[in-house]
């Protein structure tokens, strides 16, 4: 379901800034990785708050 939001690990500084902005509490920072769970409804607030532009929308695969 959530495969179209992804965290670009080469940009992410794992600050966790996306975590508290998520209205559905779908994001967890685990050590150096951002995990987005199935409850994500792609509101894209996390893309807007990320200081380094690490969160991306991937086009859904056909």
């Amino acid at each position: 379901m959530n495969e179209n939001i992804s965290c670009n690990q080469s940009k992410c500084l794992y600050c966790g800034g996306c975590v508290p902005i998520c209205p559905r509490n779908s994001i967890t920072l685990r050590e150096t990785r951002i995990e987005i769970d199935d409850s994500c409804n792609r509101c894209l607030l996390c893309l807007r708050i990320c200081p380094v532009g690490a969160l991306e929308v991937l086009e859904a695969k056909a």
């Binding site: 800034g17 508290p20 902005i21 807007r48 708050i49 200081p51 380094v52």
Partner: peptide
């Protein structure tokens, strides 16, 4: 409820 709104969050680099 601890959610932050965009207008109440500074994004910093």
């Amino acid at each position: 409820d601890t959610k932050l709104k965009l207008k109440d969050t500074e994004s910093c680099a």
